[in-house]
Write a protein that binds this DNA or RNA. Structure first.
Lengths: 131, 131
DNA sequence: CATACTAGTTCCCTCCATGTAACCAAGGCT
DNA sequence: AGCCTTGGTTACATGGAGGGAACTAGTATG
């Protein structure tokens, strides 16, 4: 019966936020969004080069983002093929919180590194002491 | 040589943002942060119940968050043990963009569902047409 | 004829995130 | 003595994320 309790998550918002984060919260989706927000419109291989993502993952990520209504896919029926991607209105609205997160990330990366380093040192000292 | 090109990611910010997202961008970290931001201070098992997370993952996630300087761990040496967690200053500053993302998520969940549904319908129609 | 180009897709493989279950320590309650 | 409690850790299993390489289509170019 402690089982049923673990299912009824007491923080209902957490569950829903979890749902959305599972969809659009993965690394590649966020980076694609950021890139499109910065450059406006990009072709498949431009995104690939920008992000250092594999063809497979980019294709998959773009299809999901298109499906979720965050990016537009513009197909030009020429040879060799040309496909352009840009943000939908909802995609643009998603940029605001994402960019906020990006800025926080850039601003605090060094702080995190420092915290991590001092934590590791403290742990090592503790190991030495207990040895 | 197209290899070396793929390594030199033309969008340098993307690489750094990628780094941070890899660290604090996972589902559980975000949810722990949100929970602590909402409740202030929580014990291990309170977090566990709130989030519906497994002991193993919670333990791991909390240790990483502590290591990254986002969460304080307050250990009370009593029996049975009592350990409390709350946000550091940096953890609190992380809440702002995260909450923004959470609000966007809650607000747009239904829109995403709608986009997804119409995408799937369109795809199915196309499949029927091509068949 | 062969090769290159763009945008994918598909197969295969690896590694990691995550869950489950068992175990532990040290004391309290009965 | 034995079971409960909290906060973990460890061993084991597994699904999914993600990369790499090969394949495709259709035309232009050498």
């Amino acid at each position: 019966m402690s089982e049923s309790e673990s299912v009824s998550q007491q923080c209902p918002d957490c569950k829903r936020i979890n749902e959305v984060l599972t969809r659009v919260g993965d690394r590649w989706s966020v980076l694609v969004i950021i890139s499109l927000s910065e450059y406006g419109t990009l072709r498949f291989n431009e995104l690939k080069r920008n992000l250092g993502i594999s063809q497979r993952m980019l294709s998959r990520t773009l299809r999901e983002l298109e499906r979720d209504g965050l990016v537009n896919r513009i197909y030009h029926p020429i040879i060799p093929p040309k496909v352009e991607y840009n943000l939908t209105v909802m995609g643009e609205s998603f940029c605001e919180p994402v960019n906020a997160l990006g800025h926080w990330a850039l601003k605090n990366l060094s702080r995190i590194d420092a915290a991590r380093e001092s934590f590791d040192i403290a742990k090592e000292m503790q190991n030495v002491a207990s040895a």
